[in-house]
């Protein structure tokens, strides 16, 4: 297994866990969609898988070893609001280089115009900023990508653009992908397997598309 979550429990107070006893696993090159009602804990699980939150109990394994706490995390999260995931006071060039230094060919493929690099986040639209988040998450060390409602705030054309370029990269490099979405149509388009969140608390049953 590429990434595996075992018996995860997490909550902001001890007595009321947001998620409890959740199991999840995904293999290399697999594209999994996670669907479920709002507030069920999908976002919490994605943050735990990306190492942004530490579970109260249970563990996240990456290639059968615990997910590294320090250093570059091989599972990268792309979040719903790109404007919150980018420091508003830094030029985008600096933000991108925090992860890695992509070449011109990559930037072209991901749809980042060279002149955007010298701008501040407030000068770009949500769709343009989300490309930077995608580019950042696609650093060479990344093996697994978690997209939490990544395209929900975007219009349909930008959504299709971003998914097209991201899927091209993911396919080429054989990365794993977890898509958290409320749109069944999108899940069916992008993923090879759809998982309902409720099924994760029992044995990870899922439906193939």
């Amino acid at each position: 297994m590429l990434i595996e979550a075992k018996n995860i429990k997490f909550g902001y107070s001890k007595s009321k866990p947001v998620i409890n006893g959740v199991n999840f696993a995904a293999d290399e090159g697999e594209r999994v969609a996670l669907v479920g009602p709002s507030g069920c804990g999908k976002s919490t699980l994605s943050q735990i898988l990306a190492g942004c939150l530490n579970p109260q109990s249970g563990e996240v394994l990456f290639e059968n070893k615990p997910l590294p706490r320090k250093g570059f995390c091989p599972a990268q999260l792309i979040y719903q609001h790109p404007e919150q995931a980018i420091n508003p006071r830094l030029r985008l060039n600096a933000t991108l280089r925090e992860a890695w230094t992509p070449d011109a060919v990559f930037l072209d493929e991901i749809g980042i115009a060279p002149e955007w690099l010298n701008r501040y986040p407030a000068e770009l639209s949500g769709g343009e900023l989300q490309r930077f988040c995608v580019a950042r998450a696609l650093a060479p060390q990344t093996r697994f990508i978690i997209a939490d409602e990544m395209s929900t705030m975007l219009d349909v054309i930008t959504q299709a653009q971003i998914w097209e370029l991201m899927l091209r990269q993911i396919e080429r490099r054989g990365l794993g992908l977890l898509v958290v979405t409320h749109s069944t149509e999108l899940a069916a388009r992008v993923c090879s397997r759809i998982v309902r969140f409720e099924s994760l608390t029992r044995q990870g049953r899922s439906t193939a598309v």
Binding site: D155, V156, A160, E164, S183, E185, A188
Partner: peptide, 12 residues
């Protein structure tokens, strides 16, 4: 817009 919808062509 129509062509870009996931249930149609998903073509950007």
């Amino acid at each position: 817009l129509w062509r870009a919808m996931p249930q149609n062509d998903f073509a950007p």
